[in-house]
Amino acid sequence: MRLVGATALCLLFTAMQASAGGAQLRALPGGSFLPLYAAPGDTLEVVLAPFRLAEHAVTNAEYLDFVTARPEWRRSNVSPLFADENYLRHWRTDLDPGDTLRAPLDSPVCYVSWFAARAYAAWRGGRLPGTAEWEYAAGSGTGRADPELRQRILDWYAKPSRHPLPPVRSTFETDDGIWDLHGLVWEWVEDFNSALVTGESRADSDLDRKLFCAGGAVSATDLNDYAAFMRYAFRSSLGGRDCIASLGFRCAADTVIHPLKEPRP
């Protein structure tokens, strides 16, 4: 009986973890992470606290729940401060994503701005992952470099994105149970505007250095991770209002501290 009770509790807490973000949240252990960019002479490693990350990107169905509950985020109501004119442009109407040729319910929602992604995550009781968390989950900067995986990622980057988008959980799953970090959509992160290629206040005080392409690479920590360069470049090209065809998001959350141990998967 006692054992059954304990198991039930474990299961319940797993369910709890799943409740924020719609998709199940997977616990990731903290660890040290080597950011792609580091100023020379700085402490290189970032220590990440344990966190949780949604197993898949937010789907059209999940996003429909959000705009149903929060009218201010419907396409016809959204403030131009928070989303450009492409916001949810592939949906048929405010509350109808349309048929499977437009926005299949189990495919990642795209054409959403950073502000919208953040509002969704907050609505579900979570937040967006940080760049370091996302990259860490994706295996970049952890010393777990896998040349084969890197090549597959680059192959995906080289292909035009598919329309309509395939469903979530259809590409690649990490050891931590996180799906589609590569191969489906690009994803918003909380601090997408943190990659400083030009105009930064430190590290590259010599103006001329900032004007060269190599200015960034000089202080990069892993020159072989070309896919990570592409992600940093893509993120730093974005503005918070941008709504783009192949850009979605997933939720994250801090790890809840409770007396029970994390149930093992």
Partner: peptide
């Protein structure tokens, strides 16, 4: 654009 550096300082536009 800005980023918090590991030493607690900030690099910023």
């Amino acid at each position: 654009a800005y980023t918090r550096l590991p030493d607690g300082m900030y690099s910023h536009a």
